[in-house]
């Protein structure tokens, strides 16, 4: 084991986890290699593409430029941890209906970011959705299906006039 290894305790997808990590191990590698949570993907490892986006204490973050050692005491949620989340379920349904994914590699990060956008910007129009989602890159879909999927969920959640 790495000479600088530290023991951290954190919550991963609702489960308490204690693990030894090398300080240089970024959170995505920790999740993927040590926790076998491979739904979190690495697309650039320099914080631009968004494929590795996960939740730390409920907020989206780049797991490739966040180090696991810095997450001691935090609560981390990956796409696997959103399996039973009602909003994530709505988004999954909408992504499928609108063909918001092709190869599926960017998709976990997209879902995490999209969930945040739906929660934070309930009144966003398509242009605002595009700006808010611009931290996630997709090379397959041309984004149309993803924007439509988020639109579908936003519209479905709007209170209906009496």
């Amino acid at each position: 084991m790495n000479q600088h290894a530290r023991t951290i305790s954190l919550t991963v997808n609702g489960h308490a986890v204690t693990a030894a990590v090398a300080p240089r191990t970024h959170l995505a590698d920790f999740l993927r290699e040590q926790r076998l949570l491979t739904g979190t993907h690495l697309g650039c490892e320099h914080g631009v593409c968004g494929a590795c986006t996960i939740l730390i204490d409920g907020e989206p973050a780049r797991s490739c430029i966040t180090y696991a050692v810095a997450c001691d005491g935090r609560s981390v949620t990956t796409v696997e941890g959103l399996d039973a989340d009602p909003l994530a379920a709505e988004l999954r349904d909408a992504f499928s209906a609108e063909h918001g994914l092709q190869c599926g590699f960017c998709t976990p990060g997209m879902l995490v970011a999209a969930r945040d956008v739906v929660q934070r910007l309930p009144d966003a129009d398509d242009a605002a959705v595009r700006v808010a989602m611009s931290g996630n890159l997709c090379r397959c879909t041309g984004y149309v299906g993803i924007v439509n999927a988020i639109r579908r969920v936003l519209d479905a959640r709007k209170p209906r006039p009496e």
């Binding site: 491979t38 990956t78 992504f95 499928s96 994914l101 976990p108």
Partner: peptide
């Protein structure tokens, strides 16, 4: 029709080469 591939990919259950150990 909707894609048969979608469910696993949307749940982070795809198996990409980097996931193979």
């Amino acid at each position: 029709i909707r894609r048969k591939e979608d469910d696993r990919l949307l749940r982070g259950r795809g198996r990409f080469v980097g996931d193979v150990a």
